[in-house]
């Protein structure tokens, strides 16, 4: 008994190398690990504050942690502090960032295409335009798949079925009003089908949606390429089309446009500075992110995670967001999800 009990004291646990590793990591994250002051990295930012309007573990959170990793490894920052505030596709976190982080230099929020839609469907009073767009970092193509046993071999055949009776072609994908649903709406609209008639079956995420497709419960599925890629490679799903401007390098799946469906959509992620930052701070952040995007560490992470780098900064990024917002608002109206 006593031997057991002894093994529970924290000291003993910490003595084992590995739990020590956990603790060291945790301490490091709070900037408690000693670092020499005034070292060679005189220009480095001490602490970069990253605001993630989603819970730990999701795509935005991973983007933030990857940025932290790349920036630290390149010596461009000394530490990063990640704050998570999840909920409603970012609509819960954004007001906090806009109000409570106002004017803070060295602070960035991660966001993306999902947020544009979520703000519209939630009728959020706070808009993305109230932030200062810094840079778009990555994008991911969407893919339209069918179960392996499906009769549809290409997009043309699926579109024909959709035109014949949209109610019969059920699409599984993520939550209503999200990227997957938006793509379904855009496809329907472009082939002359009422977007509201698309039988869209929403799932909480890629896993449950994949299960419905693998189990042949639905006619088709839409999600990010990363969610379905392995199932497609293993022959359990058939990819009919990807949604980008050109094919994904190394993936032999044609785009929607190649198959006569004039739709292009990517799920992009980027960073934003809080409102009220000075032009100097804004420029510093743009420089930081631009430099980071060129580092080997960042490129390695992109490759491992199958993210496509796509750097657009400053005013060009702001224009891009404005155009996306207009387009997404239109399709959400078509779907009956925004007014």
């Amino acid at each position: 008994m006593s031997a057991f009990r002894r093994s529970f004291t924290r000291r003993d646990v910490l003595q084992t190398a590995l739990a020590g590793g956990v603790a060291a990591y945790a301490l490091g994250r709070f900037g408690l690990s000693p670092f020499s002051v005034g070292d060679a990295q005189a220009q480095a930012i001490d602490t970069l504050k990253l605001f993630v309007p989603a819970n730990p573990g999701g795509g935005w959170d991973q983007t933030a942690r990857s940025m932290e990793q790349a920036l630290k490894a390149a010596g461009m920052i000394k530490a990063a502090q990640v704050t998570n505030k999840g909920g409603a596709g970012g609509a819960v976190g954004l007001p906090e960032f806009v109000n409570q982080w106002k004017g803070q230099p060295n602070a960035l929020m991660i966001g993306g295409m999902v947020m544009v839609g979520a703000l519209l469907t939630n009728k959020s009073p706070v808009k993305l335009t109230q932030t200062v767009p810094i840079a778009k970092l990555t994008e991911e193509q969407e893919v339209v798949v069918v179960p392996a046993a499906s009769p549809h071999k290409d997009m043309k055949s699926l579109v024909a079925a959709l035109k014949a009776d949209p109610g019969k072609v059920s699409f599984a994908g993520g939550s209503a009003g999200g990227t997957d649903h938006i793509l379904a709406g855009l496809i329907a609209k472009s082939v002359g089908v009422d977007a509201k008639k698309v039988a869209y079956v929403a799932y909480a995420g890629g896993g449950p949606a994949s299960a419905a497709i693998l189990g042949n419960q639905v006619a088709a599925g839409i999600s990010g390429w990363g969610e379905f890629a392995e199932q497609v490679k293993a022959g359990k799903m058939r990819a009919l089309a990807v949604s980008g401007a050109s094919r994904i390098p190394g993936v032999n799946v044609p785009t929607l446009k190649e198959q006569g469906v004039a739709v292009e959509l990517v799920n992009w992620r980027g960073v934003f500075a809080p409102p009220g930052v000075s032009d100097k701070d804004k420029k510093a952040m743009i420089d930081l992110v631009t430099k980071m995007a060129a580092t080997k560490e960042w490129k390695d992470i992109l490759q491992k995670r199958d993210w496509a780098g796509s750097l657009v900064t400053g005013d060009a990024y702001a224009k891009y967001i404005a155009a996306e917002t207009t387009r997404i608002e239109a399709v959400l109206k078509d779907l009956g999800l925004a007014s």
Binding site: D194, K196, K197, V198, A199, Y200, L335, G336, S339
Partner: peptide, 8 residues
Amino acid sequence: APGGPGYS
């Protein structure tokens, strides 16, 4: 509350 869209 507004009713649901037609697809549901």
